[in-house]
Amino acid sequence: MVYYHSIMKIGIPRAGLYYQFFPLWDTFFKELGFEVVYSPPTNASLLKKGLEYAHSDICFPMKVNFGHVYWLKDKVDVLFVPRFISLEEKKYMCPKFMGLPDMLKASISNLPPLLDVNFNIRKKPFIRSWIEVGKRLRVSANKVKKALVKAEISQKSYQWNNLNGGDGLKIGIVARPYIIYDKYVSAELIDRLKEKGMNILTADNLIPEIINKEIAILKKPIYFDFGEKNVGTALHFLNSGEVDGFLYLISFECGPDSLLKEIIDDRARTSDIPYTTLVLDEHTEIAGILTRVEAFLDMIEYKSKTKFNL
């Protein structure tokens, strides 16, 4: 049975992998003629709901994710919360992504239907996952394929431009997309540094070959999605001197990043590129973050002068 009522509203939480794939997702659903509703950028009251509904021992970004889903739940017909299992060959997403749809269903009542299709490249190519998404929305495979072509073009042509131009310091930032690009979570770090005239470089500004070259010399492959990308970027920063210094932003309870940090720390011991880790969670005081960032910038400044000339 088909009802010709208003256009179906698809809710996309502005959290998690939205921050990496929004050009693709947005184009895809709009090409198919749906209305896409996004939750607003993370804010304090949205986070409060997340803290209320999420399990207390999951990581900060996932708590944020819960807040976004809560905000959307009564405003849309379906929610796009896929089960991300593996996005790259031989890699796995963090278990929290695999379990997200289930955790949501168990914690928040009265959710609209979830588009919780599996994305698992180890089992099937993404196109099949998208066809399944289409099927649940009663869209033909043909239409899905056409929309996907356009969506992929949007994704590829998106400019992750964080440079200011100018000859200010070049600061690298290494972090998962939902940490670095979520302004609330990252305490507006990119904007703050840009305001000071600095140029920001993230993994998204590097071509894959650069990252792969660094990864190739690691003793063991990294099994986490985003792991190689982040470690490769950090190692590139440490080895090439392309940046004046870099920051690694991680969430307090993040298992994968606490392991990956060891690899970066290890290499950093023999590099003279200033580097600092900032650990973020829902209790983080912005003032504390800024203190560390300031000290980090001082370190870069003093390095170029050597000796406090007092």
Partner: peptide, 12 residues
């Protein structure tokens, strides 16, 4: 050489 090159602060 008299300049800070690394630091850490207690977090939580």
């Amino acid at each position: 050489d008299g300049i800070p090159v690394d630091f850490a602060m207690n977090t939580v």
